[in-house]
Write a protein that binds this DNA or RNA. Structure first.
Lengths: 256, 256
DNA sequence: GAATAGTTTGGAAGAATTTGCAAGAAAAAT
DNA sequence: ATTTTTCTTGCAAATTCTTCCAAACTATTC
């Protein structure tokens, strides 16, 4: 790995995690702490990040600062893996609906320049694709739900009622054997329209969502074509899902 | 394999991989490290890639944010002044339509927490208000026009056809005595709907736009209620505009 | 077809850069 | 105040870069 490449990966990692310790970064890029230190000082002078005691944090300008937790360093590796696995299920030049939510965001990261068209109601996702000029990105109308940067409300529902796509990348608050649930009431109507508008439904959930039930029922398991989760998902539930006919993909984390 | 062919393959490989070490490239094109080195120096001078220690990377335009907004230091002081002056014309708790474009963006900066509701088709503006959670921010549907982060197309037009507001903050490519013009054909239809949907039209232009005509006619001067510009606007045109009944506000830059 | 001039290729030696480590200084934590 | 952690600085080892050179190849001329 070249020095430039390493620095870019440090930047990327920080973009996702907001903060990272030297040890964490050192492990992630397979270089010594010293080297990471030097990289950080170098990157800092370009203004993209700020060094702190023990690590570094992103210096977010004024734009993309939705409090939404693509920056959740906690399940980062899992979501990263799920993102990669789910993106692999999308054929080049397919059109993709991307749900709001952190897991779907990670899928979006891996879809850059792969899908032909993307439809989303998530501002972070829109920002992500907005600069990658190769793809056609459709954003739904709607009112911004503040902290998450999601477009909600009747206008959003209406947009999705008019749009069809090959694949929908969905996330949710919980999955159990009697169906998929979500906690944000405002999102349910929109997600139902997404489900209606897509030919193939890919549901992305990290293992913590298994067996959980959120407040609102979103859809049944028959409405979902493929479930992508990480390898820590409870085996019994995975088995049960497969038993009843759902395709379940277990995403393997892989090191750099 | 000819030298040209080899260089082309190096370029192709880099396009896909983004980074590559010399060893990697050398193996891929079946040539010695030295030759690859020379090829890279040559290719670098054509600007398609950048050499790094140990390899090379594609020269990504890296417009990870939308190219314009804060980066555009062109006429920054003027736009700042215009932004302040135009924002002062908005009453608290009015609803405001905000056009795409750098000048309108500066108005938006001054409207934070002032207007009651904001409607926009500009992603930078949406991002701006998205985190300031007090206000209701409506975003239009549409396809992202890449480098500017503007939502365009029929979906955008449709959204604005349904929306009404007290004030519209508009920008344009040029103003002359026979009307207002803009250069982006895609925006014209949307802007017309904005004009129709607002009770009061505030047009914001820096002085360089005066006397200029862009490709597309947007509206007549009678459609505009107030024109906000900076103090360097040509006096003759300002006088002429006032003569014919337009209200013109000259924004004073205020320095330290 | 052979000889010659010019270009390209692969390699080697020395210069320059980068990397990892360790010791002392500085900063947080207790 | 002391202990622990982290940061800076200096240094030697390793890697990579530049520069030069000889061999191989191409094209031109006789």
């Amino acid at each position: 790995m070249t020095a430039t490449e390493r620095q870019k990966r440090i930047e990327e990692y920080l973009q996702k995690a907001e903060f990272a310790s030297l040890e964490e970064l050192s492990a992630h890029v397979q270089a010594s702490i010293s080297t990471v230190r030097r990289d950080l000082t170098s990157l800092e002078s370009f203004g993209n990040l700020k060094r702190t005691h023990g690590g570094a944090r992103v210096v977010t300008p004024h734009t993309d600062e939705f409090a939404f937790s693509a920056r959740d360093t906690h399940q980062l590796e899992e979501k990263e893996a799920i993102g990669r696995a789910a993106a692999a299920l999308v054929q080049p030049n397919e059109s993709v609906i991307i749900d709001a939510g952190t897991t779907a965001y990670h899928v979006a990261l891996h879809l850059l320049n792969k899908a032909q068209m993307v439809v989303t109601n998530s501002l972070p996702v829109a920002n992500l694709f907005g600069s990658a000029s190769k793809m056609e990105v459709v954003v739904s109308a709607g009112v911004i739900y503040p902290r998450l940067g999601v477009l909600v409300g009747p206008l959003a529902v209406e947009t999705f009622s008019k749009i069809h796509a090959d694949v929908a990348i969905m996330s949710a608050g919980g999955i159990a054997l009697d169906g998929v649930t979500n906690s944000h009431a405002l999102l349910i109507d929109i997600q139902r329209q997404m489900l209606r508008g897509a030919r193939k439904i890919i549901l992305c959930l990290d293992h913590t969502k298994f067996g959980r039930k959120s407040t609102m029922h979103l859809c049944g398991l028959d409405d979902v074509d493929i479930i992508v989760t990480d390898s820590q998902a409870p085996e019994t539930m995975v088995a049960a899902l497969r038993e009843r006919g759902n395709e379940v993909v277990l995403a393997e984390k892989h090191g750099p």
